[in-house]
Amino acid sequence: MSLETHPARSSPQDKLVTMANQIARFMESKPYAEGREGLASHINDFWEPRMRRQLFDMLDAGGAGLRPLVIDAAPLIRRPSA
């Protein structure tokens, strides 16, 4: 049935990239250290482990498409336990 076969839309990975970059865009207006810390703590506070795991999968693969601040903040983001 056509309800389930909707047109191609952004993949889960694309969505996460968009979301992380949106946070980065806000944090980039702050001084660098504050923004980097702010981005990491925002993701730590609001992203559930599954999303963080997917983010780390992308970061570990080089972080294609992610804004530099996301990549810079990665060491401050809590890696979910397996």
Binding site: T18, M19, I23, H42, F46
Partner: peptide, 9 residues
């Protein structure tokens, strides 16, 4: 669309 607020979705 599926666009959303940067902080809260």
């Amino acid at each position: 669309t599926d666009f959303s607020d940067w902080a809260t979705n």
